[in-house]
């Protein structure tokens, strides 16, 4: 019995640790190193069927079984409507598996931040709020955030 209780406590501690790690990781923006930026895969300028932002574009990968995707969509859409030069494009993973593979999208929402040429400047994934989105813009110097 003691062994079973120890197992249960271990599992619950592990779950708590996983949850804290998961929470901290959500919405964290990673900037792509400038040296790698131009050799890495990019999005074709006309590939999405809509124009990219003149400064930056949030390209959001979503799925239908993802609640935080809806929230992220609202946050990013609102931000894009507030700032000229910033665009938000949301695509469904199942319909865009070529892009999912090209950019190693493993979870939803995943948001790529693209410059006006479709070059990936950075990315973030998981549940995100306005704070995360603003932090992402601030990490992209010389762009919309500077205004």
């Amino acid at each position: 019995m003691l062994l079973r209780v120890v197992v249960i406590i271990t599992v619950l501690v592990l779950a708590t640790w996983l949850g804290l790690w998961w929470n901290a990781r959500n919405g964290r923006f990673t900037v792509r190193d400038a040296a790698q930026r131009y050799t890495a895969p990019r999005v074709g300028v006309a590939e999405l069927g809509v124009a990219l932002g003149s400064d930056l574009t949030f390209l959001q990968f979503s799925s239908e079984v993802c609640t935080p995707c809806r929230r992220a969509s609202v946050v990013l859409g609102r931000l894009a409507s507030e700032r000229p030069g910033l665009a938000h494009v949301e695509i469904d993973v199942t319909e865009n598996l070529d892009l999912v593979r090209r950019f190693d999208v493993m979870r939803t929402p995943t948001v790529l931040v693209l410059d006006t040429d479709g070059v990936v400047v950075g990315r973030m994934s998981g549940a995100l709020d306005r704070r995360h989105a603003l932090a992402a813009l601030e990490s992209c110097p010389g762009t919309v955030s500077a205004r």
């Binding site: 949030f58 959001q60 809806r70 929230r71 609202v74 319909e95």
Partner: peptide, 22 residues
């Protein structure tokens, strides 16, 4: 990745950012 700017047609099920209901 040979030619990142590929000539594939635009993805079909594209959803625009604006009026997705929360």
């Amino acid at each position: 990745m040979s030619d990142p700017i590929s000539s594939t047609p635009p993805p079909s099920a594209l959803r625009q950012s604006s009026p997705l209901p929360p």
